[in-house]
Computed example of a mutant assay.
Amino acid sequence: MAKVITMGEIMLRLSTPNNEKFIQADEFDVNYGGGEANVAVSLANYGHDAEFVTAVPDNEIGECAVAALRKYNVETKHIARCGERLGIYYLESGSSMRPSKVVYDRAHSSISTATEADFNFDEIFEGADWFHFTGITPAVSDAAAELTEKALIAAKKHGVKVSVDLNFRKKLWSSEKAQKVMTNLMKYVDVCIGNEEDAELVLGFKPGDTDVTSGELELAGYKSIFEQMVDKFNFEYCVSSLRVSHSASDNGWSACIYSRDTKEFYHSKEYSIHPIVDRVGGGDSFAGGVICGMLDGKNFKDALEYGVAASALKHTIPGDFNLVSRKEVETLAGGDASGRVQR
């Protein structure tokens, strides 16, 4: 199996139980998660040698976050203990026409103040096959953006393939800042993952007449922007998840991919996900599935189908992490969506 490194912020997630609104909640459910950590858990769960790199405070809460990763066989030996605190996010899970809401409390978190001196990147990337990061980490702080580029430089020095999930977060930075920082980082990237909003707000590409709020997907627009992105950044693959939001509880879920070398554009099968148990981490589970498929040597179309199936299943699991097995993903990707009891 391949050695995969992911780097970012792991956070304490406090979510309202039973779809309650914040104002109703007398208690919160506790989970840990974060974009790159979620990908590491997925890949470890599929049997790859996955390691997560981050910084956590040197206290019991920081150790709880590390323990959450170790529970799912993610390597944590290069996690730095430094900084003031673990970031927190509060989640109010929506239902039907009421959307989910996220409130961040992550200012001055450990990863936001960490520097290159806290990590030995040559040691971290020795023997690695793949490095994954997201647009969330550079958005956390200028120091985190600089740290991300240092990691990317080291990854390329060691001949490691790099993927990014663009993941624009408007509560963390503006589109103008995102485009300035992320455009600079794209020269290190081989596989670019992101939805239509990410492509526009992070890199400035808009996919035709798509309007996800009305459920309209213009696939020709995606092919056009993928071609432009490959032309500008020389990505090996451009990938996008495609979410049609009928409501917070009912989504259509598929994806598309474009290959630089073959010039082929491919749209996956679409899954109807209803009811959604937890959509947080859905994009990360998609990225983890696509990366797994590529590391397994699947062709890019089969890798995409694997990612879509994996992420469709994630929507049925509470918490940030996707905890499905290879067999479960392969069963769904193979056409069995019956959900029959396994005896």
Rank of each mutant, 00 (worst) to 15 (best):
A40E: 06
F52W: 06
S95R: 11
Y72C: 08
E51P: 00
V53R: 05
R98N: 01
V74Q: 07
F52L: 03
V66A: 05
E36D: 14
N38A: 12
G35W: 03
P99W: 04
S96W: 01
G62S: 09
E60A: 15
A68S: 15
Y89D: 08
P57R: 12
V102N: 14
S100G: 14
N38Q: 13
R85L: 02
E84C: 03
G47Q: 04
G94E: 11
Y46L: 15
P57V: 06
L43D: 00
P57M: 10
S100K: 12
L69A: 06
N59G: 10
S42N: 13
V39S: 11
K71R: 15
S42L: 01
K71S: 12
N45C: 08
G62C: 07
A44L: 12
E36H: 04
G62F: 07
L91Q: 09
V66L: 12
A50Y: 10
S42T: 12
E92T: 00
S95C: 00
L91C: 07
D49R: 12
A44W: 09
T76S: 03
A67Q: 13
D49E: 12
G87E: 07
L43G: 02
S42M: 11
E36I: 04
A55T: 03
G83T: 02
K77W: 00
V41G: 07
A37P: 06
L91I: 15
V56N: 03
S96Y: 08
A65E: 02
V56F: 08
E51W: 04
G35Y: 04
R81G: 07
E75C: 10
S100A: 08
Y46A: 08
V53G: 01
P57I: 03
A50R: 01
S96G: 00
V102M: 14
N38C: 11
A40K: 09
S42F: 06
T76P: 03
A44P: 02
E63N: 14
A40C: 05
I61F: 10
D58K: 15
V74T: 02
